[in-house]
């Protein structure tokens, strides 16, 4: 599992640093990250990640949900998990409409992150 490539899309550098640190701590060494939806699409096309951890609020014009929709156009089977502090029903409903592998609400524990990633990769 640990050789899987994970693309982290997070606009907050502190959070992205934290996630990267935790992924590394969990043994996922092939990780990359970006802070905008547009970049995420490019990176996904370039790197073909095994899993995408996608925040919903991002830099740029595209949010995480729209970005995933674009990525799924050329990587329809890629698993992705939303990592978001959005807890409003409306946003959650939009996110679930993209059929994600998981939705991890911030703040989250190590355990939650690990289980979210493993379940997504298993699918």
């Amino acid at each position: 599992m640990q050789d899987k490539k994970i693309l982290v899309v997070e606009d907050d550098t502190i959070i992205s640093e934290l996630i990267m640190w935790r992924l590394k701590d969990l043994g996922y060494t092939r990780c990359s990250f970006t802070s905008s939806g547009e970049d995420a699409i490019i990176k996904a096309r370039e790197e073909s990640p095994d899993l995408i951890l996608m925040d919903i609020t991002l830099e740029g014009d595209l949010d995480g949900i729209d970005s995933i929709k674009e990525i799924k156009k050329f990587m329809p089977g890629v698993p992705f998990v939303f990592l978001s502090s959005h807890i409003e029903d409306e946003i959650i409903e939009r996110a679930l409409a993209t059929r994600p592998s998981g939705y991890i609400a911030k703040p989250f524990e190590d355990f939650e992150l690990r289980m979210g990633i493993e379940i997504a990769l298993m699918k």
Binding site: I14, I15, T57, S85, K106
Partner: peptide
Amino acid sequence: RHDILNQIAGVRGF
């Protein structure tokens, strides 16, 4: 709320 929770996530994580 989103931003605070984001930051709380950071605080709790670190």
